[in-house]
Design a protein around this nucleic acid. Structure first.
Length: 217
DNA sequence: CGCCAGGGCCATA
DNA sequence: TATGGCCATGGC
């Protein structure tokens, strides 16, 4: 098991960075908006999340969502799909945020492992959502693994299984402990997947073409 | 039309 | 541990 001596992950990162340019996520104004986005985007196209986010108007604040009528909340997030469960999930994670006074600065003082455990205990927050909140809402160096990351691993190929925690550790062991790097690489993986996923011609110019067995998808 | 998107929960074996 | 059904909308 190579780790630091294994720079394949860094090479992929550098190739994607050179091809697509620096990425800075998450598209949101506040940490709470990131949290809302992580729930709404679960198995959902981002364009639909944007519609739902827009419906909130000035009520995209934890204080407003916490006390909002569930039926009204469902109506606001309807475009994002799965609105029955997601309305419940949103109020649950908002309740978690309330434990810290809705204060991102306070949360940033807490040990991230403890926050991760708390988040994972919430109904509606799985590993990807928890890591997205830690990384993109609060800036902790917690690498996010999503379906695109799994595909990259399978096709590049990186020989790591499909267990979430194993894949997460695989990347974290091979990258500098840096929220900026984790943020950038996850964003690049998604950008890359969107660019090449399900394209007919398949990528002659794919930045990973040298090693990627089956380009595209 | 059918497919699926920046998942997660739950029941079943 | 590991599948499979389920949730729901909108773009293509």
């Amino acid at each position: 098991m190579e780790t630091r001596s294994d720079n394949r992950v860094v090479r992929v990162y550098e190739a994607l960075l050179a091809h697509y340019g620096p990425q800075h996520w998450w598209p949101a104004e506040t940490p709470y908006e990131v949290i809302v986005g992580t729930i709404l985007t679960q198995n959902t196209a981002w364009v639909n999340v944007e519609k739902a986010i827009a419906n909130f108007g000035s009520e995209l604040r934890p204080e407003a969502v916490a006390t909002m009528n569930p039926d009204r909340l469902k109506e606001l997030i309807r475009p994002a799909g799965f609105f029955n469960q997601k309305a419940s999930y949103l109020q649950t994670v908002t309740g978690w945020f309330a434990r810290y006074g809705y204060d991102a600065q306070i949360i940033r003082q807490v040990e991230p492992g403890r926050l991760r455990t708390e988040l994972l205990s919430l109904r509606g927050v799985g590993p990807e959502t928890a890591d997205s909140i830690l990384l993109y809402a609060f800036g902790f160096p917690s690498f996010v693994v999503d379906a695109y990351t799994m595909r990259l691993c399978a096709r590049y190929p990186f020989e790591v299984g499909k267990d979430y925690e194993r894949v997460k550790a695989f990347f974290e062991r091979r990258l500098p402990v840096s929220a900026a790097v984790y943020n950038s690489l996850h964003a690049l993986i998604v950008i890359h997947a969107k660019a090449y996923c399900r394209r007919k011609p398949l990528c002659e110019d794919c930045p990973l073409a040298q090693r990627c067995e089956r380009q595209g998808t």
